[in-house]
Design a binder for these strands. Structure first.
Length: 155
DNA sequence: GCCAACGTTGGC
DNA sequence: GCCAACGTTGGC
């Protein structure tokens, strides 16, 4: 399967690109996704080595701050079975897990952040990029190869 | 299966 | 903190 590209959102107050860089093996299980469409992307389409734009949301300057890559294929998100966990899902059974995750590995920071504001100015060239679509709330979304290349060239 | 109520996301 | 967007829930 050819390499794919993704954009993954996180609130930097909770987990930032700097946190990812400091993790052992610079790798983190992307737990807590509780949206079926985002789950399906991870479970059905992500492959080891896929490119990831690391996006900071709900912060002072939302935007893409770094590059990561998919470091595992999907496996059940352990937090769904943990009654004490914020993302516990009592409706999910171990023999039939509802939620999946992949591991994400740090690649590098961007030389400069590519802010949402700046990306919006390239709307014409980034037609169809989920991030720029109205009302978009998906925490995991696909990025077309031509958009990936275009955005990286802005750096 | 409809749809109102509710909860969450996320930019501003 | 506000509020638009939108996914989910649950009564009927």
């Amino acid at each position: 399967m050819p390499k794919r590209y993704w954009l993954m959102k996180t609130e930097p107050d909770t987990f930032s690109i700097d946190d990812l860089k400091q993790r052992p093996k610079k790798t983190e299980p992307w737990d807590g996704v509780r949206n079926y469409q985002a789950r399906n992307y991870m479970r059905d389409q992500m492959q080891v080595g896929d490119g990831v734009f690391f996006y900071h949301s709900s912060c002072e300057v939302p935007g893409i701050y770094g590059l990561a890559e998919v470091a595992s294929t999907a496996y059940p998100d352990p937090s769904q079975f943990d009654a004490k966990h914020h993302h516990y899902d009592p409706g999910s059974k171990r023999e039939e897990p509802r939620w999946f995750l992949v591991d994400v590995k740090y690649k590098r920071h961007l030389k400069r952040p590519l802010t949402l504001e700046e990306l919006k100015q390239h709307e014409q060239s980034l037609q169809g990029l989920a991030l720029l679509q109205r009302g978009n709330r998906l925490s995991v979304s696909p990025v077309r190869a031509e958009h990936w290349d275009y955005i990286l060239a802005l750096e």
